[in-house]
Design a protein around this nucleic acid. Structure first.
Lengths: 357, 357
DNA sequence: CTGTTAGCGCTTTCAT
DNA sequence: ATGAAAGCGCTAACAG
């Protein structure tokens, strides 16, 4: 049971400090010249009264206009990046009344030239803040350097790059997610078990940093807990279906004792589709990300676990961080790791139904 | 790349509909008398222009004062209900500028008379909305009936009651969480395995509805997948420690083949503490809820999985729903099931570090 | 360096 | 039934 103190206003502070509201506003925002004496008086009263600005009034009165830019892969509905876009859209919607307009730029995730081109447009726009997915390391470093030169803050989502200085990073800890994947897949495995690793390639996409880290984490678990287990890599090229089917068929003919399998990018559904066609079953399988097709595979039991996070939260929080930084001048935490969510056919529906933002 | 349409205001609507802003406001809020003709014109323009009110201006101008009440178990830091309270506090903080004051009432979760007493105080306060945890079914039904009589909306959190008509429910689907617990515990178990179920009782607390549902879900999985498995219940009374240790020791002497165990309330740490003292290990163990002591047991490997949700989100969303309903007159979804989060020693830290609200 | 003042978009009261 | 106008708390331009 608590009673709220009547909220105190700038006007109250001004009266108590024997100054005008204008002066209070100036010390609140470090704007304009204020005499040391006035500043002191005001700051004292501010602290004593625990002044908290009315965010609604503040937002309403502020005349500043901001432009935020986002730089993300283009994609179709149901794919990973479309969820990321949803978070951006949601943030953009909430930002409207804060006089923030959001310009979304898209590039082809399999073509670094397209990224470079779009990066140019972003620089030309000279936005007040930028959100980007650092798919192409080299090109991102170049863009980041230029943004830093212009003192435009930017946040990274989905994967991280060490060499640059973003305002913040929002994404998963890939290494640990690989480690967890191994634990879930192998905690009850036979010590000499044979594990299949399916790697799905696509031209133009030379295995992301994220995937590498997941594999590293996966192998670390195996070194620690199952040093005599055997890892068998199977490489698949997304384009050639009949060929792939052959590869997989041969693989299982040669290795009939495989009971565990994993895919480190988000294409696990591709593999389980082949397995279904080839009538291969009884394999414990783990994959990543909640693509619609992956979810179907999870629900039908072809995949046992999906490791994921809510992509839309990553981007939403990234946008919010930019907003907090630029508009409300709040401190932003630099490394923001998403929880690693474990999904099974038993909890996936609640996960998907839940509106997290 | 999209450009935002300049936001249209009530003033614009008024001009386009040839009425005054007052009239527009009247139709927007179904307040006061408006001629059918005016109403029509305004509604037409409203729709055409996709009018979205400026929430900041609206909040600022509104003079209405609201009081929300919460009715929750009292508890100490680190316990389950302290997280619930955190969500309430967070919401209360955000509501300040909306002229909503939150009065928190607490009762003793092991004493239904204390609930009745506090319920009286709530009714006397006659708040505009209520959030409550329905621990004592009978007493809650009585309170709910009176609230419904006064047309005071209320939301239920944590567990649900069928007989009453809350504005909304926020909590876990207990049945499914029991089913999932069984799956995680037993998916690779031997078909004749013996499973220990530890039930921790406390005087005054006669096994909650929630616990019953979890057990029901757990048993359903076993019927479906392991019909010949044996379930062995062990009853423990929280108060008598030396006695309990004896009980557990005897139990494992009589049943040396137990490899899986579960606790359905949040006291799994109690049991693993006994096991540690008795030097019993190698048991796969699942529990519920992120009490600090449970987290410790998870991290040390004594517990393999914890099933949980973020309690503070439940209460935060519950409060938000009341707010959306009373202030913004939005539709509220009635059943809101939380995701069932699966925690292991590998993902718990990211889960705990993540600021979800 | 400081005080005054005109709004921001919306709600609400008061005349008409 | 409707319009005009005051004012919510804050920002920012302006005058001094």
């Amino acid at each position: 049971m608590k009673s709220l103190p009547d909220k105190i206003r700038i006007k109250d502070i001004a009266r108590l400090a024997n100054v005008s509201t204008g002066t209070v506003d100036r010390v609140l925002h470090n704007r304009g010249e204020v005499s040391a004496k006035s500043r002191e008086k005001v700051e004292k009263v501010l602290k004593e009264m625990h002044y908290q600005p009315n965010v609604y009034a503040s937002a309403l009165a502020s005349k500043k206009k901001y432009t935020f830019a986002t730089l993300l892969p283009e994609c179709n509905e149901g794919e990973y990046w479309s969820d990321i876009k949803k978070g951006v859209d949601q943030a953009a919607h909430e930002f409207l009344d804060l006089n923030i307009s959001v310009e979304q730029f898209f590039f082809d995730q399999y073509d670094n030239a397209s990224f470079e081109k779009v990066a140019q447009s972003v620089l030309q726009l000279a936005p007040d803040a930028v959100l980007l997915a650092p798919i192409f390391k080299e090109q991102v470093i170049s863009l980041a350097t230029q943004l830093e030169g212009k003192e435009i803050p930017y946040v990274l989502i989905d994967s991280d790059i060490e060499e640059i200085h973003p305002l913040a990073y929002f994404g998963m800890n890939s290494l640990q997610s690989g480690y967890l994947a191994a634990k879930l897949l192998l905690s009850e495995a036979h010590k000499d078990t044979e594990i299949a690793i399916f790697q799905v390639y696509r031209s133009g996409n030379k295995g992301s940093n994220q995937t590498e880290l997941r594999i590293k984490g996966f192998k670390r678990y195996i070194e620690e807990h199952l040093p005599s287990a055997k890892l068998l890599s199977v490489k698949i090229y997304a384009q050639n279906h009949t060929r792939n089917q052959e590869i997989i068929k041969d693989f299982f003919k040669q290795h009939p004792h495989i009971h565990e399998a994993i895919t480190f990018n988000s294409k696990v559904y591709l593999i389980t589709d082949y397995l279904k066609k080839l009538d291969i079953s009884g394999i414990k399988f783990i994959g990543y990300d909640l693509l619609q097709k992956n979810v179907e595979a999870l629900k039908s039991g072809e995949v046992n676990f999906l490791l994921a996070q809510r992509p839309e939260i990553q981007s939403y929080l990234g946008m919010k961080a930019l907003c907090e930084h630029k508009i409300f001048k709040n401190e932003i935490k630099q490394k923001n790791f998403m929880p690693i969510d474990i999904l099974t056919r038993e909890n996936i529906d609640f996960y998907l139904d839940f509106r997290a933002i």
